[in-house]
Design a protein around this nucleic acid. Structure first.
Lengths: 237, 237
DNA sequence: CACGCCGTGCCGCGTCACGGCACGGAAGGA
DNA sequence: TCCTTCCGTGCCGTGACGCGGCACGGCGTG
């Protein structure tokens, strides 16, 4: 079903470059114009894209994508949001819910702090497993080779053995933390939500500017996030 | 490109029923199992779905959808979020950003109140033009026939002439309101964000439980939301 | 006026999607 | 234990339809 692959690539490209025309898409994807146009027509008929603002030759994606996407991990999200809300009330800080996928964790829900200085990450963003609190929380419950550890800042853990020791500590204390390992001015604590078989299905975190997480608060936040994750792990039985 | 349509239907159905198997999908879509399976394999190869948790015969969508979806209306959202945040700080209430699409408005961003009693609408939800504050704010700047006005509650405006008068009032005062016209216990005020040509490209609203919006507050919120929308209209020049 | 690029539409070729069917396995009931 | 049912998977002959080269008309530019 090569044409399906083509159509999906076109959809993705439209999403990335909207509003965009046939020619540009064809050039960018390395496909004949006819092929791209057929895909566009089909996607349009199916309601996934539409002509952009008056111009009938420019295309953009419709909210169909949003409608379909919001159903991802629906049950998990429904269960998690009230708990996340409680965390935000208790700490006044931003709370994230992420799920592992491939070699990364993906942000699927967030509740933001009221404070003017805050972390804002877009839904769907992917963070590295070895250089984020949520990633390490998840990684601590996985058994996978720890190689290829790119550095993002001066504090990123790039040595496999050091990371292994860190993950053991994470398992012992219940939560992972992040001391500027992905972005030097961001700190976080995170704890994994486990499925019935003990595998990590998600992770919940509290993220703050580095300046708002001294060691004593870090420990307190860590305890809170660990308890929240345990609650959710229990409610998924 | 019938198979593309099929594959997209399968993708949508997977999203709605995940985790789900071949048989159920085939039954639900009225398609041969072979056809559905071919679509599943293709979607999997393209990275849009994956086997669900251990079970290799159950499928769920990946975060690919989320990644692609979050790029919709990106510029608008970036511009709007700071203004929405200011609104939430000023009012302490939930703020929504919606865009018109077809015969509805679609929720593309939200900032929620801290209060325990709150409106929670999922991203991507569609609300009717004639029975929501955002819908009426948008409709006031459109010229389209006002027929087919289904009632959702006792206060829904179902008469075309009455709606026309209401829309004139909306234009005059700058904002639209909603007095339980879609859900009887939800109140809102909204104001349209206009493009360079005067057409409505989005709308911003403050939504509260009906009990939290007496007339004096409604007027105050209306003024705030109108100013916010004007700011955004200006920044899109 | 010529040129380049745009989006669109046509059409013959040949590929590949269609869908009926059979198979092996798991689950469950008699 | 055997039989039935439903599951997911894979095969294969037929023919529909997607492929992509090409031409056309429109538009902005040099």
């Amino acid at each position: 079903m090569q044409n399906v692959v083509t159509a999906l690539r076109v959809l993705e490209e439209v999403s990335a470059r909207q509003p965009v025309g046939v020619g540009e898409l064809a050039r960018e994807l390395g496909l004949p114009k006819s092929t791209v146009q057929r895909s566009l027509r089909t996607l349009h008929d199916a309601g996934w894209i539409r002509p952009a603002g008056g111009e009938v030759t420019r295309w953009q994606v419709t909210s169909k994508l949003l409608q379909v996407a919001r159903r991802t991990e629906l049950g998990l999200r429904d269960a998690a949001v009230p708990v996340m809300e409680e965390l935000r009330q208790q700490t006044g800080e931003t709370v994230h819910l992420m799920v592992p996928e491939g070699e990364a964790v993906v942000l699927i829900e967030r509740l933001e702090t009221d404070k003017p200085l805050r972390i804002v990450l877009p839904l769907g963003i992917r963070l590295p497993l070895h250089a984020s609190a949520n990633g390490k929380a998840v990684l601590a419950h996985l058994d996978r080779p720890l190689d290829e550890l790119p550095a993002y800042t001066g504090t990123t853990i790039v040595d496999g053995e050091a990371l292994r020791a860190e993950l053991a500590a994470v398992r012992a204390r219940g939560y992972a933390d992040n001391r500027g390992e992905w972005r030097s001015d961001i700190a976080a604590v995170a704890s994994a939500i486990l499925g019935a078989d003990g595998s990590p299905v998600a992770s919940i975190s509290i993220s703050t500017p580095a300046s708002r997480m001294p060691d004593d608060l870090r420990a307190a936040y860590g305890a809170l996030v660990t308890r929240a994750a345990r609650t959710l792990t229990g409610s998924l039985g």
